[in-house]
């Protein structure tokens, strides 16, 4: 009994972890299902068919391709713009800091449905038809703040003396940035980029407001499928995504723990 009491916290922690992971496990298991009807909600019998032909569900791979493209572009642009802003906030003193902070914070404090619908009104009033470009613009906008937060955390924890040391040793401002500041900020920038990509790739609500029938992203595809039936292939994609994410996060962790040990 005291043993249980002593490890109560560990049990609670593991139970919550299980709560977080069980859906992913279920998705993985059901990617091997051969459902009876159109909905993949009940276990019927084992089949690897969906794994062998993940593009079997019409339109799925096109949607996936679009999501990947938008995700890469949005993550890239948001990372560049966000990193610049983070450097300004973390490394410089200037007037208008609180206004800048407010503008960065607001997108994070605004529900997606508000951002999605307001962008729709902007594009409608400007006479711009919905589509993949609008989606990308929207994704860059809401990813930017998250990149700023991730990079700023890293930049403001850097010791300013390292930059002074570089200048003292004869590095001009550009060399200092390239050889000292940037490498040291890199983990924050990588984390920001990764976060931006996953936010973009996963977004349904904002995307839905700004998409056209010819710009169906993967989450929209899943949503549409959920109305008519859930093809097993989307479970395959979900499992692959989980595995990729797991790999990326494991590599990231290994890199950062190696840095902690060695650098």
């Amino acid at each position: 009994m005291t043993w249980i009491k002593r490890h109560l916290l560990a049990f609670a922690a593991l139970a919550v972890l299980a709560y977080l992971l069980i859906p992913n496990l279920v998705v993985a298991i059901f990617s091997f299902n051969d459902p009876r009807g159109r909905y993949n909600y009940e276990w019927n019998e084992f089949s690897a068919a969906a794994w062998l032909n993940p593009c079997g569900s019409p339109g799925l791979c096109e949607a996936l391709g679009l999501s990947l493209r938008i995700g890469f572009i949005a993550a890239f642009v948001a990372t560049v713009l966000g990193t610049l802003v983070a450097f300004a906030l973390g490394r410089h003193r200037f007037r208008g800091r609180s206004g800048t902070n407010l503008l960065i914070f607001m997108p994070m404090a605004t529900p997606e449905v508000v951002m999605g619908s307001s962008l729709l009104t902007l594009f409608v009033m400007a006479g711009i038809p919905s589509g993949a470009v609008n989606i990308t613009i929207a994704h860059i906008m809401f990813c930017l703040s998250f990149v700023v937060v991730a990079v700023k955390a890293r930049v403001s924890s850097l010791d300013p003396r390292l930059e002074e040391a570089a200048a003292d040793l004869g590095a001009n401002p550009f060399q200092t940035f390239l050889r000292v500041t940037l490498p040291l900020a890199a983990p924050g920038i990588a984390a920001g980029a990764l976060l931006a990509f996953s936010l973009s790739f996963d977004d349904y609500i904002i995307t839905n407001f700004n998409a056209s029938p010819s710009s169906i992203t993967f989450p929209m595809y899943v949503w549409g499928a959920a109305q008519r039936g859930t093809p097993v292939e989307i479970f395959v994609v979900g499992t692959v995504m989980f595995l990729i994410a797991l790999t990326v996060v494991v590599i990231g962790q290994m890199l950062s723990s190696r840095r902690d040990r060695k650098a």
Partner: peptide, 10 residues
């Protein structure tokens, strides 16, 4: 020679 050395950690 800086107070906390400021060696580049990377």
């Amino acid at each position: 020679v800086f107070q906390s050395y400021a060696l580049f950690p990377h």
